[in-house]
Amino acid sequence: MQEALRFQSVDVEPVDRAGMLTQARLVRRGSDSAARGLSLTIRDLRKAFGDNEVLRGVDLHIPAGQFVAIVGRSGCGKSTLLRLIAGLEVATAGSIAFGEETRAQDVRVMFQEPRLLPWARVLANVEVGLGRERASAGAQARAERALVEVGLGDKRGQWPSVLSGGQKQRVALARALVSQPRVLAFDEPLGALDALTRISMQRLLERVWRDQGFTAILVTHDVSEAVALADRVLVIEDGRVAQDVVVDQPRPRRRGSAELAALEGEILSHLLEGNEDTPGL
């Protein structure tokens, strides 16, 4: 499957599978928590909506516990890829296989909108994330722990309507985390937030990822966010993986450092080049 991947980037050092795995382990702190994540293998994944082929053969391996960012222009199929991974859409062809057998609560999604139930208080909204285990004995305690984890322990009894946009998104994160997922997919979760809230949310995402060791897949249109958070950035173009870039930077990363800026510049210039090649965009 390695040869099926397209490494079009010349400037970025070529990536070999083994090297990437080492990279992922280096980045990971606690080795036991790394065991929590699930690896993910995608083969020749295709998805068409009617005549419109959105994904045209994606091949991809994501090691357990890796933080992968998927970037690309709007309509490139990045959100579709994420929805397929999360099981929200059915592929037209190809396969997605997790490293081990998964239960429903092992894969969770966080959307751009918080999607909280307005008629349920914050704690009850987090409990929704427990799925079938909602009725179990420790449900409330688990939900409370998840709320504390995202720093909203004192908001448990509030209605969602009184929370700020960033707080709502943190409740949504707690809801996604409460079942201790092994894969967490983010569909532009910070897209609707203001710049400062975004940065603090990015820190929070990075921290919970490091604490819990799930495999993180982040779809974003913000390349600087991608290089700041991810171990690896995938550029999707015309329904395929056009570029696969390893972000070999120690954590915690300093936003705006020269290395990150250089990487960001490379990915951006690639994206922009593609833009000029495509007439009518």
Binding site: A86, F111, R115, L117, G131
Partner: peptide, 12 residues
Amino acid sequence: PQLIEMGRIYGM
């Protein structure tokens, strides 16, 4: 419909 999708994802 986004809330309905959310509910389904969380196994309701």
